[in-house]
């Protein structure tokens, strides 16, 4: 059984005139435990709304059709209780875009402790989880710092630590790298990958950076509230025309290879990451 099972999901907002505005038009999706998934799509494609529906943090459930099941529990059902929602949020953690607007406390360790405190854990257990979480994101030395003195990437890693400390099975990153500088982005992506590879967490990275999407094991392209493509990065980034049609860029290396091919240079193989690209170019030059 899949960890997350979405069936014929439709969701709309009410616009200013009161008529429903379709955001998610028909999505069916299965996500297994331990997957590393990137969800891409242009602004307004519905990718963030999808993430918010998974943790039930949307304002209005009236415009929802279809069903979402998480770990065997149908979370879109009408008899979902407060406690049920609470259990769901223990299973799925979310990291948002702006690190500043996620941190609650004035000291790093107290912020990381916020989630475990809400879970009502024992003091010793909270201590252990805070220390472990900070070690996982590599921020142990900042334990007593004030968050507002840290860089964007560091703040975002603290926000991630705050989620890790709650020990969710799945972590959704909702454009968590969008506001960061390249170094901050690199650190956050590295943290995501470590969580997936070493701790076996299900990681869903919602992003509009194709160079991040390429690193995932599975890429889902959402366009206009529907799934346009779903597959491995190699499969997805071969569909150049469809991606361009959805208003998306290609990863830099894929783009470069296509242009080289257009110039008549013989370059072959699956090329989506800089390493693959460098090898292929070296091979082509060697000929």
């Amino acid at each position: 059984m899949s960890f997350i099972k979405i069936r014929n999901l439709k969701y709309s907002y009410k616009d200013d005139e009161g008529s429903p505005l379709g955001i998610i038009r028909d999505i069916s999706l299965d996500i297994e435990k331990g997957e590393y998934i990137a969800i891409v799509g242009h602004n307004g494609s519905g990718k963030s709304t999808l993430a918010k529906l998974l943790t039930l943090v949307v304002d209005d459930y009236d415009y929802l059709e279809g069903s979402i099941e998480v770990d065997g529990v149908e979370i879109t059902s009408d008899d979902m209780t407060e406690d049920g929602i609470y259990d769901l949020r223990k299973k799925i953690g979310m990291v948002f875009q702006n690190p500043d607007n996620q941190l609650v406390a004035t000291i790093v360790e107290e912020d990381v402790a916020f989630g475990p405190e809400n879970l009502g854990l024992e003091r010793a257990e909270i201590r252990r989880r805070v220390d472990d979480a900070l070690a996982t994101v590599g921020m142990t030395e900042f334990i007593r710092h004030e968050p507002h003195r840290l860089s964007g990437g560091q703040k975002q890693r603290i926000a991630i630590a705050g989620i890790i400390a709650m020990k969710p099975e799945c972590i959704i990153f909702d454009e968590s790298t969008a506001m960061l500088d390249p170094i901050g982005r690199r650190d956050v992506v590295a943290t995501m990958e470590r969580l997936n590879k070493e701790d076996g967490k299900t990681v869903i990275n919602i992003t509009h950076y194709m160079d991040e999407a390429v690193r995932a094991d599975r890429v889902i392209v959402i366009d206009d509230g529907k799934i346009l493509l779903d597959g491995t990065p190699a499969e997805i980034f071969a569909e150049v025309d469809k991606l361009r049609g959805a208003g998306l860029d290609l990863p830099q290396c894929t783009d470069l290879t296509i242009r080289l091919k257009a110039k008549g240079i013989d370059i072959n193989g699956e090329i989506n990451t800089p390493e693959q690209c460098a090898k292929a170019i070296a091979a082509a030059l060697g000929k």
Partner: peptide, 19 residues
């Protein structure tokens, strides 16, 4: 911030422990 706090299972002072 409210959304982020909800996602981190905040539901008021009841049943909350402290570090």
């Amino acid at each position: 911030l409210a959304t982020a706090m909800t996602c981190r299972c905040y539901r008021g002072g009841n049943g909350r422990t402290r570090l």
